[in-house]
Design a protein around this nucleic acid. Structure first.
Length: 297
DNA sequence: GTCCAGGATACTG
DNA sequence: CAGTATCATGGA
């Protein structure tokens, strides 16, 4: 199957981003063959896709495990388009960045990079909660243990491509079972709370999207115990895909600004908020591009 | 040993 | 209302 790509799209950036975590359980990047292999939940069961760049510049999508039917092909196309944010017109962001004293230092270098999404709201929130305050390295460990304990494996070529645990599965656990995976008491409680809320149907991606504007989504999410402004905006950025979601308290953002601006200490939240005023409408993309500056090459 | 990681909450003055 | 202690693991 083929997927046509928008004008500004850089596949190398997808590979680089998805290859940050050497022990990633949810997908695999083959750097030499330039492929990404990933399983996701379809209506009739798990689907495994392997994407690659075709010679003609389109995205090639293979289904190495089982031949999909028409519904499944459509689901995969939709999933990938949302995952890689293929539908977004980045031209307004690039125009904005050209005239911004901070973004102009970063954005042109990575033109074509799109925010890689997390389709599942429970996964996005769980990942954000796991990542609160600790290093990415530790957060990756938490995620891997959670996925391999309670997720669902799809075996192919001698390894497992895991499906992230469903909220219903986590909702039935005791806090101690999450603590055994090295979640702190607080994080275990937060994650259980979110899982129960979603399992009860009181929180879903569609109901959140129906809120419409960013402020309303943030209000609903921050009403949940353990979900502060950072977590809410992170989840909205990665899952709901609002281009203006802004994880202001993000340490990576602070470090990126320090690096890009050549500061000798991290800027204050008030300063960042002021700079970001001119990024209005695109603060999620501004953040993603600034994060990129922290990665070599 | 100390500091800090892609924060949130409860508590204090 | 603004500061501060606490969480709790792992790498530098």
């Amino acid at each position: 199957m083929r997927i046509s790509l928008p004008a500004d799209f850089r596949y190398d950036e997808v590979l680089l981003y998805l290859n940050r975590n050497a022990q990633e359980p949810l997908h695999a990047v083959d750097a030499e063959r330039r492929t990404v292999t990933k399983a996701f939940r379809g209506q009739r069961g798990p689907l495994l896709v392997r994407i690659a760049m075709a010679a003609d510049g389109e995205l090639d999508v293979a289904f190495p495990l089982a031949e999909p039917d028409e519904t499944e092909r459509a689901a995969a196309a939709h999933y990938i388009a949302e995952w890689l944010d293929l539908g977004r017109d980045l031209a307004p962001f690039y125009r904005l960045a050209e005239n911004d004293p901070i973004l102009r230092k970063v954005v042109p270098r990575y033109r074509g990079m799109r925010i890689v999404g997390v389709g599942d709201l429970f996964e996005a929130l769980a990942w954000a909660i796991a990542g609160q305050q600790i290093s990415l390295h530790v957060a990756y460990g938490l995620k891997k243990r959670l996925v391999e304990a309670y997720g669902d494996p799809v075996a192919f070529e001698g390894r497992d491509y895991w499906l992230f645990p469903e909220a219903a599965r986590i909702a039935g656990l005791a806090e101690e079972e999450l603590q055994a995976l090295k979640f702190t008491r607080s994080k275990a409680a937060y994650l259980l709370g979110v899982a129960k809320l979603m399992d009860a149907g009181e929180l879903s991606k569609s109901s959140l999207l129906a809120e419409g504007d960013l402020a309303a989504m943030e209000r609903r999410l921050t009403a949940i115990r353990g979900v502060g402004k950072w977590t809410a905006n992170y989840a909205v950025m990665r899952c709901l895909r609002h281009p203006d979601a802004f994880p202001l308290a993000d340490v990576g953002l602070h470090n990126a600004l320090k690096l890009v601006l050549g500061l000798d200490s991290k800027p204050s939240l008030a300063e960042i908020e002021r700079w970001a005023e001119s990024w209005a409408g695109w603060r999620a993309y501004a953040t993603f591009y600034l994060w990129r500056a922290l990665t070599p090459s």
